[in-house]
């Protein structure tokens, strides 16, 4: 019976843990899409930028060191030993909040009331600019990110159940769950949270009760920045901080197709489904068809959803009024 097979459970659990990471990236998309109707192509780059900034602070890099060298002949690339992780995380968050403010003022405000596709294009531009700025600021080399999270397989699980589960993935899942619960409480029970949901539903009505759209956008992009930071840290700790990190955004797309673009629970469940589905498919069906199914399974699933349920599992049904 497969239910008693530890191997089966190992596949399920590692799938769930991977799914949490996908959900984390998808969450950033959903937050912005709900509040402003913008599909933020730059979400992946935001995660990369956040991770680069964190490593930069941690290791005491001087931002724009190469630029300063070219312009003024300064040869220093580090200002010291760096700082401890907690302070670096805090400062990175401050940078992300500042970045959110800049995005609202420079990109979003001039484009207010424009078509969704134009805003989408603007975020593509933003992605390229941010990637360039990230490169210029912190350099293009692959960096190791160590935030002190436990690594290696969990001995406890290995000894007692025979399952091989990475400690890093467990802690990533725990952090993600804390983040999601905090966001839920924030959006349900605070003034700002209620305002956020109001803006997501109707811009005009939100303005008429005294809610400032720009403030809300700033808050939303800051929260997305926070989510990007967490996602960047987790993915960065797993596979190093490199520019391909921005491609994790692509992994979030199928999650959004499944969960719907407008649902936070959808993003989470979509992420978990893809994580588990991917691993199960790879382990049980993969060997029959030559393996490497993890590369395309999620996209195939998304395609099926697009064909049969385009609004996703939890998204609002799209009704065109005539």
């Amino acid at each position: 019976m497969f239910l008693f097979d530890p191997f089966f459970w190992e596949v399920v659990i590692s799938g769930l843990l991977a799914g949490v990471m996908y959900a984390l990236v998808a969450l950033g998309f959903v937050l912005i899409f709900k509040a402003s109707g913008i599909f933020n192509f730059a979400q992946g780059v935001l995660a990369l930028f956040a991770a680069l900034t964190l490593v930069g602070f941690q290791t005491g890099q001087i931002p724009f060191a190469h630029l300063l060298e070219a312009l003024f002949g300064l040869h220093a690339s580090h200002w010291g030993e760096g700082m401890n992780t907690v302070l670096a995380l805090f400062l990175s968050l401050v940078v992300m909040i500042g970045l959110a403010w800049l995005i609202v003022k420079i990109v979003l405000r001039p484009l207010v009331n424009q078509e969704g596709i134009i805003l989408f294009m603007a975020t593509i531009g933003l992605a390229f600019v941010l990637e360039g700025v990230g490169d210029l600021m912190w350099g293009a080399n692959v960096k190791r990110l160590d935030v002190g999270l436990p690594e290696g397989p969990s001995d406890f699980l290995l000894d007692n159940t025979g399952m091989f589960i990475e400690k890093l993935e467990i802690s990533a899942a725990v952090v993600a769950i804390i983040l999601v619960v905090t966001l839920m409480i924030f959006s349900q029970y605070t003034k700002m949270g209620r305002a956020l949901r109001a803006v997501a539903d109707d811009h005009q009505a939100a303005l008429s009760v005294g809610i400032s759209l720009e403030t809300i956008w700033w808050v939303v992009w800051s929260i997305s920045g926070l989510v990007a930071l967490v996602a960047g840290v987790m993915w960065g700790a797993k596979s190093g901080v490199q520019f391909s990190l921005s491609l994790i955004a692509l992994k979030a797309l199928p999650v959004l197709m499944l969960g719907g673009f407008t649902s936070i629970p959808g993003a989470i469940i979509g992420g978990l489904m893809i994580g588990v589905g991917e691993k199960m498919f790879e382990f049980y069906i993969g060997p029959m068809i030559g393996g490497a199914t993890e590369n395309w399974f999620a996209y195939m699933l998304a395609l099926l959803f697009l064909l049969f349920r385009p609004q996703g599992l939890f998204g609002e049904k799209i009704i065109e009024r005539v």
């Binding site: 949901r197 109001a198 997501a200 539903d201 109707d202 005009q204 009505a205 939100a206 008429s208």
Partner: peptide
């Protein structure tokens, strides 16, 4: 508003 502008999800 003329065309009701409520927060429909709430």
């Amino acid at each position: 508003f003329q065309n009701i502008a409520l927060f429909k999800g709430m």
